[in-house]
Design a protein around this nucleic acid. Sequence first.
DNA 1: AAGTGGTCTAGACCACAAA
DNA 2: TTGTGGTCTAGACCACTTG
Lengths: 232, 232
Amino acid sequence: MTASAYAWQSVRAEALRRIRTREWPPGAMIPKEAEIAQELGCARATVNRALRDLAEAGYLDRRRKGGTRVTETPVRRAVFEIAIIRHEVEQSGASYGYTLLEDRTERLPDELAATLDQPRGTRWRRVIALHSAGKRPFCLEDRWLNPGLVPRERADFAASSANEWLVRNVPFTGGELSFQARKADTALASRLGCARGSAVFGVERITRTDDAAVTAVTLTYAPGYRLTTSLG
Amino acid sequence: MTASAYAWQSVRAEALRRIRTREWPPGAMIPKEAEIAQELGCARATVNRALRDLAEAGYLDRRRKGGTRVTETPVRRAVFEIAIIRHEVEQSGASYGYTLLEDRTERLPDELAATLDQPRGTRWRRVIALHSAGKRPFCLEDRWLNPGLVPRERADFAASSANEWLVRNVPFTGGELSFQARKADTALASRLGCARGSAVFGVERITRTDDAAVTAVTLTYAPGYRLTTSLG
DNA sequence: AAGTGGTCTAGACCACAAA
DNA sequence: TTGTGGTCTAGACCACTTG
């Protein structure tokens, strides 16, 4: 059958059908919850659950007193899961390798300090590590850590990545993420085992708890990397 | 006060607090809904709403009969909204420009045909267009369109992008999306107004309705482009 | 077989925004 | 002021999974 096992999913499917067939065209007001509930023979709460779900997915625009409208141009969202790099490698079937390359305390570059709301000249811990898949370099990690939130004596990154330590030990509440394409300079090319000037995929991420920045990381993937997801 | 206006949000906040403070440590089982409801003095449905929300956000792992556990390594998700390119440019404050460069029917490359579940040798419409910000090239669009779903006589892309026509006229049900870094070849560099060999950011997207592929597009952004979002 | 989350209902009241 | 969605409850039954 077309209808799902649960009533609210059937209601959702029926509403989505009406949107897609333009029985409820873009921009149009749809009947109120109570009417739909009566028509489909279920409780209003069930209709509410279904329509709320469609609204979260971007198909409907709902307002108290204003009623529910079909979105003019549904906003499509792509969701990426931020995986632990080890899992990403292992999932591809390759064996995962990790090498710590550098680990010292350094002065934050002024621009980064500003982004992280730190005074100029602040010193943070800087860790550079290489993640590999089989024998091939997979991703270079260049990370700055707030020494106040990540005590050096409690966080040893010789054997396993800062990524994993942080996930387990410093719950974070927010941050920023950006993707970009970059050209590999000599140092990067040497570490990633690719030609100088190669186009490489870069991810920059800043992680915060409440308002204090915890870590800023730049991940650079070896050439050929693709970040993929499906649209629902 | 810390608690939200609505009861289920207060319950959510309280549960999240217990997770963050490790009162409910990673991997631990938390009390069952009925117990939490009694403790916090609300209905079980209210607790259900709160915990379901935390489970969707990746903090909890719930199973019937198995109870609810705190996720060992919370999966963080990044959500990108797939904007219409015109809006993306306008939002940056620049004036938007659009130029149609090519529009003809061509044979699908074999590899692409396979991905799109089309027979080898199938001919689709191919549209190449440039989006610009002010006087600078912003993004080159190279798109294939299923002629059965996008009739040439009803879809004219001389003045506005296929992107916008599709959003308004062909509701889609799914697809795939991938990001990668690419090196600009001579043709691309010329059209994007950058040096040959530049690292450029590429997006590939395939859009389907039910099971038929509607369109496959490759967007290549001029050097310097960053795709950004915030983590919740 | 039993226990826990998932759903559903009927009715009620609340919150917000439009008139 | 009024109407619509948002939430809440108490109780019930269902569905999945583990023992």
